[in-house]
Amino acid sequence: MPQWTLLGLLQGKQTAPWPLAEGTDGQAGLLGMPRYLPELCGDDCKACADSCPTKAITMRASYADSGRLDIDYGRCVVCQLCVEACPTGAMALSSDWAFGVRARDDLVWKQDAAAAPATGAATRHAFRRSLHVRHVDAGSCNGCESELQALNNPFYNLHRLGIFFTASPRFADLLLVTGPVTQAMLGPLRATYEAMAEPRWVVAVGTCAVSGGVAEGGYACGHGLDGVLPVDVYLPGCPPNPAAIIQALLMFLERAPQRVKGGQLVE
């Protein structure tokens, strides 16, 4: 055993300083949600809408100077196909990934985003330094689980933030759900929620849980959590990276600001 202690000590501190101090968050080079630049948008073009596999982009029936597209980032699977399809650069590569929001509507692109702050969440002071999370996989592709498991690796080290995964829903304050909600998981998901003591909250992690994702519908799949459970935080992403999940959890605890309003980063 001493050899392991030595191995650990020799490596020194491996944890990222972020989000408690300035420093790397480990996401350098990561492609986030494509950014919409309406001033570059060409007339009579619907290449991005045609390329989108989840209908996150649709054409507006009528438009003036507020953009030609309806973009719902709650449906985006970050496949970057719209960026490749766009001939004018109106859908641009970005590293925008901190897409956790309290109101579903904040994931829909708006021209005057900065003027529409989303607040009104109940204060959760008692839980700020000790939050217990129960995760339920309601039919994910396991990409989200891979990133959730990464939260407890030495790099992200979620425990240091006072956030813990718990085995029993009875001990959980927050239900974290991944996946589009398959028909077979609908019952167990509801039962898990019912087993939680109040106050209880729900966060939808990943585009599948937010809106159904690529597998949405059909004979076996639902459309995410809307209409199934009351959702307090929506975090789209395919999958959302560990830093995005941490940011969304801190936002839920009101320890970090919501960075996205009207489908855009507004910092």
């Binding site: 480990g26 080079g29 990133e147 790099f155 395919c238």
Partner: peptide, 22 residues
């Protein structure tokens, strides 16, 4: 898990995706 994280960060540097997608 730390080594896995390093590998995923190399994936990001190579492709922009931790899962080598797209």
């Amino acid at each position: 898990k730390l080594l896995e994280e390093r590998a995923k960060q190399l994936n990001t540097r190579l492709t922009g995706s931790r899962f080598l997608r797209s």
